[in-house]
């Protein structure tokens, strides 16, 4: 089977603004794949390119082997999209909205009605089936977007920040539901700002920034790339000269040593394996240990570290100067976000 999503050097330009920059990404069939990145990283642009709401400027994009432009009908038929925006037909009761969507995907009317009931029950808003979208609460609207994505029985479910602004209960309900779907074989592409969400749900995550793929890895692999902090409280304070000595003496394994009064913070690759050696070294230098704590690197810290830049939201192709530096423009990000491109 071809990958669920395969893009090669995908580019999207808005005039001189480059929203996607040679993005190559593969999501295997059956995977639960996360897309992380700050606002303006190009996550939604990437998704919209797959479903036909954004036209690519260059490169290739395939869904289950179907080119998203040349074979758009097959590609779109395989995708169920729950977008960030509430882009739902306001003229009809929500059950009919779902029936229409199923119908567009070739599901006959009777079956579409059955499917609509089924997905409304699954997301927990069946009793609202005769209501219109505008009468639903925020959480119910979010559930409906998921129901609409599911009613076509997609092989690839794309969730664009599905839990943004929802309460804890709904977030957990959605997590449970999408986990079930993934276990049933549906490939899932999830974009989110919640690191915990990606860490908990995703097999692999891609971190994007400025339209580029920064890295792709499992959450555990990512965490291994970070550093741990060993915090040590000493029985007595450390003098300035002793602190300077420690920095030099521990340099073989410590990336950074910070001393404040009787507290010492040492940043190392692996806190668990380094702590015994650190204790030995401190005791050898006459320091008595009162307390010790190891703080593991969070995925969030790694994410922030990977996406940190002076200007994280906008890159202009015209700025691709000889040295490859990106030009900053702080006036445009909000415009693009308002247009739903970001």
């Amino acid at each position: 089977m071809p990958p669920a999503i395969e893009t090669t050097d995908l580019v999207k330009e808005y005039g001189d603004l480059r929203a996607l920059q040679e993005l190559s990404l593969t999501v295997e069939e059956g995977e639960f794949f996360g897309l992380l990145g700050p606002n303006g990283a190009g996550k939604t642009t990437f998704i919209n390119t797959l479903v036909g709401l954004v036209r690519k400027s260059g490169g290739e994009a395939r869904v289950f082997g179907h080119d998203v432009e040349a074979e758009y009908r097959q590609a779109r038929d395989a995708i169920g999209l729950a977008p960030q925006e509430f882009n739902v037909d306001r003229f009809f009761p929500i059950k009919e909205v779902l029936m229409h969507k199923a119908g567009y995907h070739g599901v006959p009317e009777d079956e579409a009605a059955e499917r609509a009931d089924e997905v409304l029950k699954r997301v927990g808003i069946y009793d609202k089936r005769d209501e219109r979208f505008d009468w639903l609460s925020g959480g119910m609207k979010r559930r409906l977007l998921l129901a609409r994505a599911l009613v076509t029985d997609p092989d690839l479910l794309i969730l664009d920040e599905p839990t943004a602004g929802v309460d804890v209960q709904l977030r957990h309900d959605l997590w449970e539901l999408v986990t079930e779907l993934n276990e049933e074989g549906t490939t899932i592409l999830l974009t989110t700002h919640y690191i915990e969400e990606a860490e908990r749900l995703c097999d692999r995550v891609a971190i994007m920034n400025e339209g580029r793929k920064v890295t792709v890895a499992t959450p555990d692999e990512l965490k291994e790339r970070g550093t741990d902090t060993i915090s040590v409280r000493l029985e007595s304070g450390v003098s300035a000269s002793a602190a300077a000595d420690l920095e030099t003496d521990l340099g073989a394994y410590a990336h950074e040593v910070t001393t404040t009064g009787d507290s010492l913070e040492v940043r190392v690759d692996d806190g668990g394996s380094t702590a015994p050696q650190l204790l030995n070294d401190l005791e050898a230098r006459g320091h008595e240990i009162a307390d010790l704590e190891i703080t593991r690197t969070s995925l969030e810290e790694i994410f922030v570290d990977l996406t940190r830049s002076d200007d994280r939201t906008v890159t202009r192709s015209s700025a691709s100067s000889a040295d490859g530096a990106d030009e900053a423009d702080e006036s445009r990000p909000s415009e693009r976000e308002q247009e739903g491109v970001a």
Binding site: V51, R76, N87, G106, G340
Partner: peptide
């Protein structure tokens, strides 16, 4: 205007 035309545009209709 309300972007629900996306329901049609993201479908496999020609």
């Amino acid at each position: 205007w309300n972007e629900y035309i996306h329901e049609t545009l993201t479908s496999p209709l020609s």
